[in-house]
């Protein structure tokens, strides 16, 4: 039998208040790990900011390196190029994926295991491996290989798993077949239903998938540099190898960009699920 200590019971109200506070107190090691993580994450960011404000000559402003970078026409042109490629990637991805995933859910559910398998493939065949097989193929299309749009066509593959996952989850959340049948009974055609009924219901999934796609395409370096395109990450690399300060300033700009995209994604996702989307490491 458990023996209760004989200490006189304190006034109940007081002791239970104290207890509740004791109970909800986080163990020290939890706080320690949170602190370690915070330091590990924030130290590089702090250093980047600090570093990018250093190395200026007398008379130059604190934000000299940022000014230099923003004044560089190459900054604007490469940033714009990367944005263009990202938007093209999103456009092609959506055009390809939305009808396909919709159709698979509606008429070909047996294909879903196949889709699951295909969405692992970009992980099995990372960009550096894919390009080994793809570059010699692209050579045969000399009109295509010189155009930066080719990057968008390739990035579609990298974005595939994330977009598929977002769309698949979005479609699973709605009773697709009932919606389609209801629309059909009211006289809507299948494309009309897709456009007017399904797409509005998939808005969150589409925006979320698109944001991830933008983040992936904006940061992609491997394929862009190996195929010889001067995108924003390639430009960042080139600048950084000549002027470290400018390169670090550019890194900070990329950081803010990715953060904005992920924050938007997080705010979009219900209670943080959206933030779980993670790109294949480049």
């Amino acid at each position: 039998m458990a023996q209760v200590s004989a200490s006189p019971a304190a006034p109940a109200a007081l002791s239970s208040h104290r207890l509740r506070r004791v109970r909800s107190r986080v163990p020290v090691w939890h706080l320690l790990w949170l602190l370690v993580a915070a330091i590990f994450f924030l130290l590089p960011i702090y250093s980047v900011v600090q570093f990018s404000l250093e190395g200026t000559l007398p008379g130059q402003g604190v934000f000299h390196w940022y000014e230099t970078v923003f004044d560089d026409p190459m900054f604007r042109s490469t940033f714009w190029l990367s944005i263009q490629i990202s938007l093209e990637t999103v456009a092609v991805s959506l055009l390809l994926m939305v009808p396909t995933v919709f159709w698979i859910h509606l008429r070909l559910p047996r294909l879903r295991p196949v889709m699951d398998l295909i969405t692992i493939l970009p992980f099995v065949v990372p960009p550096i491996v894919l390009i080994v097989g793809l570059a010699p193929m692209l050579r045969k299309f000399s009109w295509l290989i010189v155009r930066p749009e080719v990057l968008a066509l390739i990035y579609v593959v990298f974005a595939l798993p994330f977009l598929y996952r977002a769309l698949d989850a979005g479609l699973r959340a709605i009773d697709l077949r009932t919606l389609v049948e209801a629309a059909e009974s009211l006289g809507s055609s299948i494309p009309g239903t897709l456009l007017r009924v399904i797409l509005p219901n998939l808005r969150a999934a589409i925006i979320g998938g698109s944001l991830l796609t933008v983040a992936i395409s904006m940061g992609e370096f491997t394929v862009a540099s190996l195929l010889g395109f001067f995108t924003f990450p390639v430009y960042t690399y080139e600048i950084a190898t000549s002027t470290a300060y400018e390169g670090v300033a550019l890194s900070f700009i990329s950081f803010i960009f990715v953060w904005a995209a992920m924050l938007a994604l997080y705010l979009l996702g219900s209670g943080g699920r959206g933030a779980a989307g993670v790109a294949i490491t480049d």
């Binding site: 250093s47 950084a240 470290a244 670090v248 890194s251 490491t281 480049d282």
Partner: peptide, 12 residues
């Protein structure tokens, strides 16, 4: 990940 990360750590 990628280019900005590498230079962030160079700065660190």
């Amino acid at each position: 990940a990628g280019i900005p990360l590498a230079f962030a750590f160079t700065a660190t």
